[in-house]
């Protein structure tokens, strides 16, 4: 059993060049915030490191933080410019029975996060879902396609973004029926 603080200390010792910080909100578990482009190295260490042994990825969720600037378009809809998209990793160690949460953020305009697919195969479909829903590109993912939405869904249209607008037509069918 290790708390987030202890894990953070271990990580800081191991990766002095990467920035870490602890997100503390009232009801939630403590979250370790780190760098999106180094996440695979960190995760690999978390999986294999002595005393950590996070052997499974419980959940990976992409979130639109909606912290950018809101701009109102001509037709009254809103577009968010700037700000970040986040990915949360909920890790679990079956062997040592402890859990932790990691968070990384990436820019909204060109969201790029390193894939952890090769570390936990469980991440495969979760990452595809995050790509599908929020458009987060997972670098080095072997098969980054849409998963829940149709393959021919409009390029650049990601439903779970807060400023998402329904397309008017999909394959000649009116969408808001």
């Amino acid at each position: 059993m290790k708390t987030a603080k202890e894990i953070l200390e271990i990580l800081q010792k191991k990766f002095p060049e990467i920035e870490f910080s602890l997100v503390e909100d009232e009801p939630s578990d403590q979250i370790i915030f780190t760098d999106a482009l180094k996440i695979h190295e960190i995760c690999e260490f978390l999986r294999d490191g002595e005393g950590l042994k996070f052997d499974t990825l419980m959940n990976l969720s992409g979130v639109d933080d909606a912290n950018g600037e809101k701009q109102t378009n001509d037709d009254g809809s809103e577009t968010i410019v700037g700000g970040t998209l986040s990915v949360y990793y909920n890790l679990d160690s079956i062997e040592l029975n402890h859990k932790t949460t990691l968070q990384v953020s990436t820019s909204r305009e060109s969201p790029k996060v390193e894939s952890v697919n090769l570390i936990w195969r469980a991440a495969d479909w979760h990452e595809r879902e995050a790509y599908d829903m929020l458009g987060i590109k997972f670098l080095n993912h072997p098969d980054l396609r849409r998963i829940l939405m149709p393959y021919d869904w409009e390029e650049g249209s990601y439903p779970l973004r807060k400023d998402y607008k329904d397309p008017e037509f999909y394959q000649g069918m009116k969408v808001p029926y």
Partner: peptide
């Protein structure tokens, strides 16, 4: 009306681990 924050709650569903990651 929960306070600001996030939670990952998991339960043993008949099919396996059902987790809700809720951000408020």
């Amino acid at each position: 009306k929960p306070p600001k924050g996030s939670i990952y709650q998991r339960v043993e569903n008949p099919k396996g681990e059902l987790g809700y990651f809720i951000i408020s």
